[in-house]
Amino acid sequence: MTPSFSLCVYCGSRLGAVPDFIELAQQVGRWIGAHKGQLVYGGGNNGLMGVVADATLEAGGRVVGIIPHALVDREFAKLDCTELHVVDNMHDRKRMMAERADAFLALPGGIGTLEELFEVWTWRQLGYHDKPVGILNAQGYYDPLLAFLAASVRHGYMNDWQMDLVRVGSEAGQLLGELAQAATTRTGAVDLSEI
C-alpha cells in the first residue's frame, strides 16, 4: 500500500511528566494510521517516540524508523517498524527523515526535538524544501518558545514571514489535517541531497 502522505514527527525520547502528552502522541499515531498515512520518525522505542509509532502501527499506518548506530541500544531501536533504517550518524538520520517526509510536526520534546524542528524550519526558509512544518502546541507547551520567537521578530532578528512558515495549532486532528492537505497540494520540487 502506498501511503496517502508521509509525516515526520519529532518528539521526546522520554514520556515526560504530563500524562496528557502520552495521549496526545497516541492521538497523532492513530490519526496517521486512520488516514492511511506513514509516520517517519527517529526509530526509537522509548518515550513519546515509541508511543506515536505503536499507535500508528496499531491503526494500520506504516512506520519508517531511522536511527543511527550509536543510538540503537540507547533509544532501544523499534524493531517492528514497517521499515527500520540504521544509519551512520545523526546527519544521515535527519537527512533521510526529511527526504522520506511530505510534512513535519513537532510534539512535546527536549533539545533533540527543538534542534530537528529548527533545522527543517531553517531549511524551509532557505528554500531547500517547501514542505509544511507544524508545531502541536498542546496545553501551551510551546508558548514560552513562541513568545521568545515573537521577541526575536520585535528585535529585528527574524521577520513575520519566517514565523508564517510554521503552522501552530493546539488541536491534533485539525493541525494534522492542515499539514496533510498542504503536503498533498504543494508544487515546489524538493532536493535535500545538497544539505
Rank of each mutant, 00 (worst) to 15 (best):
T82A: 09
H85N: 14
N137F: 09
V133D: 01
M158K: 09
G177I: 06
D143Y: 10
R95P: 01
D160F: 09
Q181L: 13
T113P: 04
G112N: 06
L146V: 03
V86A: 05
T122I: 07
W161R: 15
M96I: 12
G112A: 06
V133A: 01
E115Y: 12
N137L: 05
E178N: 05
G127L: 10
V86L: 02
A106W: 00
G65S: 12
A70N: 11
I135C: 05
A172L: 00
L126P: 08
K78Q: 04
A70W: 13
D160W: 10
N137W: 12
A101K: 01
G134K: 00
G127T: 08
V72N: 06
L136K: 07
A103K: 00
D80T: 10
E171Q: 15
Q181E: 11
Y157M: 11
D143W: 10
D102M: 08
F104M: 08
V168P: 01
A70C: 11
R100D: 00
L117F: 06
G65D: 02
G169H: 06
A98H: 01
C81E: 01
A151K: 11
S170Q: 15
V120H: 03
H91I: 11
G112S: 07
V133N: 04
T82H: 08
V120W: 00
D73T: 14
W161M: 09
K94G: 00
L107F: 05
A150V: 07
F104E: 03
L79C: 10
G140S: 02
H69F: 15
A101H: 02
A151F: 12
L149R: 08
D164H: 15
V87H: 05
Q174Y: 13
Q162C: 07
L71E: 03
L114V: 08
Q139I: 11
D143T: 04
D88Y: 11
D130P: 02
E171R: 15
G127P: 02
H69K: 15
M96D: 10
I135F: 10
L175Y: 00
L149S: 04
M163I: 13
Q162S: 09
A147S: 11
Q174P: 05
G109P: 02
P108A: 10
A98T: 04
A138C: 13
Q174G: 12
V133H: 05
L136F: 05
D80A: 06
W123K: 00
Q139H: 15
E83M: 11
G112W: 00
I67D: 01
K78H: 06
R93W: 03
K131C: 07
W123C: 01
